[in-house]
Each structure stands twice: as structure tokens, then as C-alpha cells.
Design a binder for these strands. Sequence first.
DNA 1: TTGTATGCGTTATCAG
DNA 2: CTGATAACGCATACAA
Lengths: 343, 343
Amino acid sequence: MKFEAVTIKDIAKALGLSTSTVSRALRDSYEISPATKKQVLEYAAEINYRPNPIALSLKEKRSRSIGVIVCEFANSFFSQIINGIESIAYDKGYNVIISQSHESYEREVIDLNYLASRSIDGLLISVSAETEDLSHIQSLHDRGFPIVFFDRVAETILTHKVIVDNFKGGYDATIHLIDSGFKRIANLAGSPFLSNTKERFDGYLKALEERGVEFDQDLTSHCLHGGMEYEEVENALNKFMHLSSKPDAILATADKVTTNCLRYFKSKNIKVPDDIALLGFSNLDLTDLLSPSLSVVRQPAFEMGQIATELLLQLIESKRPVRDFEKRVLPLQLLARESSIKK
Amino acid sequence: MKFEAVTIKDIAKALGLSTSTVSRALRDSYEISPATKKQVLEYAAEINYRPNPIALSLKEKRSRSIGVIVCEFANSFFSQIINGIESIAYDKGYNVIISQSHESYEREVIDLNYLASRSIDGLLISVSAETEDLSHIQSLHDRGFPIVFFDRVAETILTHKVIVDNFKGGYDATIHLIDSGFKRIANLAGSPFLSNTKERFDGYLKALEERGVEFDQDLTSHCLHGGMEYEEVENALNKFMHLSSKPDAILATADKVTTNCLRYFKSKNIKVPDDIALLGFSNLDLTDLLSPSLSVVRQPAFEMGQIATELLLQLIESKRPVRDFEKRVLPLQLLARESSIKK
DNA sequence: TTGTATGCGTTATCAG
DNA sequence: CTGATAACGCATACAA
């Protein structure tokens, strides 16, 4: 009782034709007589014939599917991106295979090897928070494999990148807090390995400088795993809250950091925004519900997925040389709510 | 500058060997001399050879990957299940290909066809809320393809199923509400096509009966899309709230329904649990944050994914005949909080 | 208009 | 110990 698929050969045998005739009839080739075509198509439909894409891939050296690696698709930001990716890919007849790195470098390497070992035509990747060594991606790129980065990019690898304006995001958020009357703004950031983190931080610094607010090293902390682990956020916030001169606002520059901040405040019974203001990067649908007074920096995730996919398909279909790669920078959206207006 | 993979042939040519020798050396066959082995392995490592899984699949008629179809992986419940699936699958050397139906019957059929034709060795599926006609799955099953259902199962298709004890979940939740002093308990359910829904509802009925609480048809409503669309929930709740005799508690028997209930109450400024009690099915990590006083029915998602995968791999590797299929029923967990204790 | 032969990358089955 | 050949399912150049 094993599952046996029906092949062109079966059709050929049943109809007393050759496999090539059947193949051509199925592809509606002009060289086949209408009568034969009809016969073949009808029989194929009857026995529910489906071409074997594995055989096709082997022959055509392409699978019409693209691989995606993200840290975690339970994360709203990434699931929105994936929806964007799928919207374009399906439209163009490509399938999408998704892997999660769970922010683990090791897992990322495994995923990459599986995907890249030729079952996919190209790769969309947002590197894990842990990833420092990029040689696994670099070597693939060196061999001419189409890769597009999104959100978390590897600056040193020269291919298309789709990112948000992280600098401006950090800058705008900080300016907003300062102009709302906050003076001691702590910066709680994600993984130190990600360029995103650095750029957002630079925006923060620039804003402080521009408004003449003194920078305090004690008001800065990183979360190695991008805030995935609650303890990272807890430790950082504990540090802040025990300073002799506590912060009056927190800028959380990564999605997971933001929700874990809320969790911390809830558990410590610290009220946002009464006891402390919080402005966080987040793409969670539920931020309104979580804390209606939380100001939020939101990223154009769906659009990001779409653009990255378009670029990748261009690479795959070689409508462009790989060399003149692009860096698309999308704007972020600051949704200010009462939280960050000092009374 | 096209991406060209290195094959066994390349190695053979470079080393002046035959492809079969190289193949055997790579697989560490006993018939190959240590010297040749060493030579081949070293060269393979040097040029970073990776076997082409497409060719392997074609030859072996198996891909060592399994397909998964869920409605939405942004949904915590399903992402937890997928983590359970991956934990087992990776362990046993299988890869996992995930598709989302977005609760659309049409999308489910497309996904199914893609996966099945892409030579996955087996399928794990939780049917979409919209799915009524099961013939696409039935025909695959009829042809002997290994399928295991989880969570949302098709009763008529005779294969392994992994579910939770929905009846008991509905029953326990209702009993808890009644025993906490609530009298008019509305039941807001998910898709009417899912057996889950019916079972949870039956549990609700049974509890009412057992405690001698009268059943009121007006206190019952369904969400066709499983609560995915906010409007469905909104309409249902509007109906409830405009009854001459309003409910004093709501039992939300689907994840999305639960969060959309919270959204509704927030938007209408109705306080839980002061104005109305809410007890919901939910696997969201953030339920505590969303509403710390919300009692919750939680499903053992990770475990469910693991069990389903184990059963599927047994089917695939034919350690069991397909006929004596199992129905594994896992217990649900009721996390009661202050919400559902009437003052 | 249809059939035959070949190759995609790999391994298994024969021969040597 | 190693090499040649066939086969997996399909499409296509070439023959007929």
C-alpha cells in the first residue's frame, strides 16, 4: 500500500504512445495532432496526473521556489514580512520555503545548508541575532547564488538589501521623547551584532546631541539574544532602575525588547507612563491592547517582504547583473500616544 | 555568473576517477581503498561539495521532508505546534516545509497540491476554518499518502489524529464559570465547520445541564473565520450586549476569538472582569499582559506537534500498517484567575 | 505528426 | 578495489 505517483510513462503505456509524445501533448506543443492531445489530456485528467517537480527541477536546474530564513516566524514583524514575501512569490509562480533560526547561529547554518543545497533558486535572509561570522552566507554569495538581505543585513556582503531607516527611527523616537519633556532617556537595544542596533543607537546619540542632552553610558544596554530571553531584559532594566539617578523614559529599540519591557513593568507593578515612559519598536498587532498608552515605532514589514522578493526574483531571472546591488531604505512610522508626553 | 553547483562528476574529472568510485568514497564504502577515500574526501571538502538533494529525491523516491499546513503560523498556538514538529523532525533527519492556508479553503487546496507534488514524504495538517469539502485530502489519503491530522481533524478520513480533549475543555471552563457564580454564560465559538467547535460546545451544554442552568439559544454565536476577522467577533458581541438580559460571562472557545473579545471590550471601554467575565481558549504568551485577570484554557501545543510528527514518521517508515489508526487525545489546562470568580 | 536518444546528479548492479 | 551502465521522471534535439 505504498504511495505511487502516476508518471508520463504510465500514460504513454496505457495509450500506446511514446513518452515524448505525451510530454509534448501535455505541454500543448504545436507539433501534436489535436486528436492525440485530446486523448492524452483526457486520460491524464482521468488518472489525476501531476508532473513530478523533483524531476523537473533536476532537469531545469531550478525549482521555482525561494528560501526564507528568519529568526522566528511567531514574531509579528517577521510573519508580516513573510506575508509580503508570499504575496509576490505566489503571484510570480514561485513557492516559498521558510526556516527559523531561533536566533541561533548554528541553526542558521544548518538551515542555510539545507535550503541552499539546490532545492531553492534564491534566498531571502534576515540574519540571527547571534550571527557574527558570515562566511556561510559569503561563500554562497561568492558562488553566484542569488541572495537578498532584509531587515538584518550583512554590510560586508555585496548584494541587494532592504532595510528600514533605522537611524531615523532611533532619532525620531528620541527627539519625540526629549520634546515631550523627558531628560534621562535610557536606550535598551537588541543584539550588538546587528547593524540595525548600531544605526538606531546612532540616531539616539544624534538626537541627544542635537537637543543638547548629555549622553550617559549607564543608560545604555544590549540584549545579546535580541530580547528573546526575558532575563536579558530583566537584568538590563534592573540595572537602570537601581541607578541613583533613574531614567524617566526607556527607548526599546527591538520588538522583543519592547514586549519584555512591558512584562517587566507589569511584574514589578511599575506603571507606564505614570512611573516611567516607554517608547518601543514593535510590530505586534496587539500593542494597543498591551498598553494603550505605549508609543510605538512600527516598521513597514509587509512592504519590506514584497520589495525583497521582487529584488530576489530579478536576481534569479537575471534581469539585472548581480553587481549593481541596491540598498532600499524604507521609512519607519512613529505612532505617538499619550505615553510619551510628560505631564 | 550563474550559480553552478559542484557535482560528483567534477570531483571524478579532477581526480581522474569514475563517478561511482567518488560516490562510494563519499559514502565511506568498505570497497574503496583508504588512500582514494582520503583523496576524494579532502578534495570534496576543499571545493565544498554538497550532494544534490533533488537528484537524491528523484532516485530514492523520498525527500526526507514532511509538509505542514496550518491556517496561520503567526498564531501562537500553531507556532508552538510547529516548534514541536521541528523538534522531532530535525532529530530524525527530516526537514519541514510549512504552508499557511490563511483560513482559506482555496489556499489550502493550492498548498496541498504543491506540497504533495513536491515529493514530501508525508503531511501534517490542521484544516482551515473554511474547509467543508475534504475531497482534496481524501484523495491523497486514498492513494496511500501518509497523513496525520492535528488539532482540527477530518473525522471522516481514517488516519492518525492528535487532538485535545475539546469536550472536557468546554465542560471544565463552563463548570468553573458556573461554580464561580455566573448564571448567564454566553458561548462565542469559532468556525462551525470544525469538529473542535462542536465538541467544545457540547462540553458547554453538558456543564449547563449538569448544574441545572438553562440553555439560551440567544447566548450562542459562531465566527465563520474562526474569529480571524474582528468584525465577526464584534457583531456577535454586539448581539450579546444588546440582549434584554445580557450575559454576565463570555466563554470564547477559540484563540482568535479570545483576543478579539479583549479588543472589543477595550474599544467599548467594558472592564474585564468587573463589567463582564471572560474565559477564553488561548495559547498566546502574552495573555497575562493583555489581561492579567483573564482565565485561560491552554492547549499543549508543543507536545501535540511532537506526537503528530512521531505518528507521521511511523507511517512514513511503515513501522505500522496504516489501518489501525490512532486518535490521541491530550488534556487541556485551565488556568483560572480572579476574572472568573464572581464577587 | 510521432518516436528515439540523451542528460540533469546520484546510487545500485553489474563487470572487471 | 574500481569502472561502466542503467535507472529515477521529465523535456528536448534529432530522426523518421
